[in-house]
Design a binder for these strands. Structure first.
Lengths: 73, 73
DNA sequence: GCAAATTAGACGGTTTCTGTCTAAAATAAA
DNA sequence: TTTATTTTAGACAGAAACCGTCTAATTTGC
């Protein structure tokens, strides 16, 4: 789920993987892997993405949808 | 931050690390390492903890406090 | 169609994670 | 307080995951 969300958020903002990588202090290749879910997100990268895109970790992880509705509680 | 939160949530519920490990399908030693932040949380473990403790990923990651106030936006 | 920009595969070296076994520490019982 | 039980953390080694680089493929714009 996080891969799809990261790709969406990035494209909504018109950024390349390279650009996001620079902001996250990692390579384009690593951002690509996040989007393809070939590697797991570190908590550090997850938190950086939250600040960068101004969304919750729950949203990126798919624990809430676009409306903010939670997957639990 | 996640270590402190996991430990708090676990102790509030009166569970041992062994018990949480069983619910997360990992060893007691691994839960201990999460609490000590000796290893990073996988997204899978993070999501399991959210369901188990009925809290948001943002809370566990320290992106919001006990009152639900967000660290950003 | 061509050039430029963007994304993804392959490879190898490095780091991180994992469980097991065990010792230390904390808690409960006697 | 001693003793027994439970709980937590260190050490080790093997396994798995991560990472950047180089490069090929794909996409986008002219």
């Amino acid at each position: 789920m996080y891969g799809k969300r990261i790709k969406e958020l990035r494209e909504e903002r018109g950024l390349s993987q390279e650009a996001v990588g620079a902001l996250l202090h990692c390579s384009q290749r690593t951002v690509s892997r996040y989007e393809l879910e070939q590697i797991d997100l570190s908590t550090e990268a997850l938190i950086s993405l939250c600040y960068l895109f101004k969304v919750s970790a729950d949203y990126i992880l798919g624990l809430e949808d676009e409306t903010g509705a939670k997957a639990f509680r």
